[in-house]
């Protein structure tokens, strides 16, 4: 990323581009394990959404649809808190890939 010079920055370095951290894909931190969503077991309790620190649960039209691997860091809280007998989110092995870097 090109760094702005002091002449280009807003006064007081006020950030007018609210919520632009979505470009920062925290999913690149994941190492070794990732959650897998099994739709048949899901009872739509939204606990995974509630307890995901990186807001990586995909919710569309009021239903949990899966996991956004762009942001999921693989902490595993969603899987632990999933209340169904046969868990709708299980942690699976993931081959670690080298992160590509955040941009050019």
């Amino acid at each position: 990323m090109r760094k702005e010079t002091w002449k280009e920055l807003t006064i007081g370095t006020i950030n007018l581009d609210a919520g632009n951290s979505v470009k920062n894909l925290t999913g690149t931190w994941r190492s070794g394990k990732k959650p897998q969503f099994i739709e048949e077991h899901c009872i739509q309790c939204f606990f995974c959404w509630l307890y995901c620190p990186h807001f990586a649960i995909l919710v569309e039209d009021g239903e949990v649809k899966g996991i956004n691997y762009d942001y999921c860091t693989g902490c595993g809280m969603c899987s632990v808190e999933c209340p169904t007998k046969e868990k709708a989110i299980v942690m699976v092995e993931e081959e670690a890939e080298l992160a590509e870097g955040s941009g050019k």
Partner: peptide, 14 residues
């Protein structure tokens, strides 16, 4: 919004 740099399993976003 997502993309913040808090640790794995952090309690603050909750």
């Amino acid at each position: 919004v997502p993309g913040h740099g808090m640790c794995l399993g952090c309690g603050i976003p909750l």
